[in-house]
C-alpha cells in the first residue's frame, strides 16, 4: 500500500529559555511574577507575544516581561529594585537562547 501525503499542517511550539529549572517550587510554572501571564504570552499592554514583547533578565537571575518590569521600575515605589528580592535591578546581558529543553 502506498500512502500519498496530500497536505500537512506543521504545529510548532516555542518557549523562551528562561534558564529556570523545570517547575518552580510554588507550582506556578513559568509566569511573569508581575502580570501572572506565562512568559510565552505577552504582557497586558501588548497584543503579540514573541519578539514584540521580550523578556528581561536581571543579574539576580529573575525574569519578567520587559514591559512589566519597566513599568514597575518606572514607579517611585519600586526604588528601582527587583520585585522578587528587592536588590537594585541590574539588567543582565541578554542570554543567547539555547536549545535543549
Amino acid at each position: 500500500m502506498k500512502v500519498h501525503v496530500k497536505n500537512w499542517h506543521a504545529i510548532a511550539q516555542w518557549r523562551w529559555d528562561t534558564g529556570a529549572s523545570d517547575a518552580d517550587d510554588d507550582g506556578e510554572g513559568d509566569v511573569c511574577g508581575i502580570c501572572r501571564v506565562p512568559y510565552e504570552g505577552c504582557c497586558p499592554s501588548c497584543k503579540m507575544p514573541g519578539d514584540d514583547c521580550p523578556l528581561i533578565w536581571g543579574e539576580c537571575s529573575h525574569v519578567f516581561h520587559m514591559h512589566c518590569l519597566l513599568q514597575w521600575i518606572g514607579t517611585a515605589a519600586s526604588k528601582q529594585q527587583c520585585p522578587m528580592d528587592r536588590r537594585p535591578w541590574v539588567t543582565a546581558e541578554r542570554k543567547v537562547a539555547k536549545q535543549g529543553r
Binding site: C68, W72, Q81, P83, M84
Partner: peptide, 8 residues
C-alpha cells in the same frame, strides 16, 4: 502594605 510592597 506600604513601602515594602512588590508587584509579585
Amino acid at each position: 502594605l506600604k513601602d515594602a510592597w512588590s508587584p509579585v
